[in-house]
Design a binder for these strands. Structure first.
Lengths: 186, 186
DNA sequence: CGTATTATTTGATTTAGGTCAAAAGCTGTT
DNA sequence: AACAGCTTTTGACCTAAATCAAATAATACG
């Protein structure tokens, strides 16, 4: 499903908005391990993954922690940097060769001005980010490592299958060894 | 510091916007243990605490988990419900007798229409909520119970002093017994 | 291919914080 | 003041997951 269709599913857009969007979306291609965004830069794009897989992670004293993992038909951006226009503390990297569609912060704002009904879709995308963050907090605070794994397995089995184990582990808030043992059923 | 001044500190408002705000803010008084918002209702107000203390919490299978605690000069609302217009999963209760100023969702939107420069302040308030949530996730995921307590003690000692221990414990993601032992220095 | 490098698994051990149970301290009410 | 009903503290014990260390397995690359 291309980006425009995905947005349409969130909230209907006028034909004019659809046309305008189609002319203002960029298509980009990344190779496995390419960085889409480097920590310290402002994230100027809302990305949408057509194929492949990418993730956002940040550096702590002694390890990289994965914040989110996005696959086909998922949005991907450094949310806080994108909305606040401040430097991102997270980097975004591709876990596979990845094709994305991207729309810049400026273009989105032009879209809002030209087609006010598009604000609703924009808000829905960003709210979705917020509620995912909330869910993640609740999951880390109250679920056991195995429950967190099982939930991800049910909801996003493509991540379990395709993302690197180390990334999945830090995303789920556990050590790689623990994830490996859970996976082995021990 | 009254609400209007607090907002001015975030982002300057025109004299017209300030006047309009002053005429459209409600002042409300709550007693200790009063509910400001009941779980299941849409949160229609952005509250601002003039005196007292309140907190947001939600019910799990076997306990109430505190999401946030706000004191004098803090904003307080059920963020997700307020922005999405959906039922709140959290309740807001007063931990002390509490005086608040409140502005409704509708009035805020009128303000935005009448005085577009006010959008910036609105966005800053909401971004602040998002980044607090992020900080909390990171803290729960990577800091020990004692470190989490110490951080709260440094940053918000009024909470440590005045909020009920059980609320502080669930807010910090630990058991009350653990918090009590940390406090006793054991 | 075969070897180097990186990713994953397995084993042994430790530990932070949870659980359960009871005691001690507070606060408000008549 | 005395009692009831909270909140907070303390003690003994237990367990999930971390840590440390090493062995395999998978992947990439000349």
């Amino acid at each position: 499903m291309p980006l425009v269709e995905k947005i349409q599913n969130l909230s209907a857009l006028s034909p004019g908005a659809v046309d305008w969007l189609k002319n203002n979306i960029e298509a980009l291609s990344f190779k496995k391990n390419d960085l889409i965004l480097k920590e310290g830069k402002v994230c100027n794009y809302l990305y949408y993954i057509k194929s492949g897989m990418a993730g956002g992670y940040y550096q702590t004293k002694d390890q990289e922690i994965c914040n989110w993992i996005a696959a086909e038909n998922d949005f991907a951006t450094s949310y806080y940097s994108f909305i606040s226009r401040e430097a991102s503390y997270e980097s975004i990297a591709c876990f596979e060769n990845t094709e994305v569609q991207a729309i810049s912060y400026e273009k989105i704002n032009t879209l809002y001005k030209l087609f006010p009904e598009s604000e609703r879709a924009g808000r829905l995308i960003l709210e979705d980010y917020y509620s995912r963050l909330e869910e993640r907090l609740i999951s880390i605070q109250f679920k056991s490592a195995k429950e967190r794994y099982d939930t991800l397995f049910e909801k996003r089995s493509e991540i379990i299958k395709r993302a690197p184990l180390g990334r999945i582990a830090t995303y789920l808030g556990m050590k790689q060894e623990t994830l490996s043992r859970i996976r082995a059923g021990k």
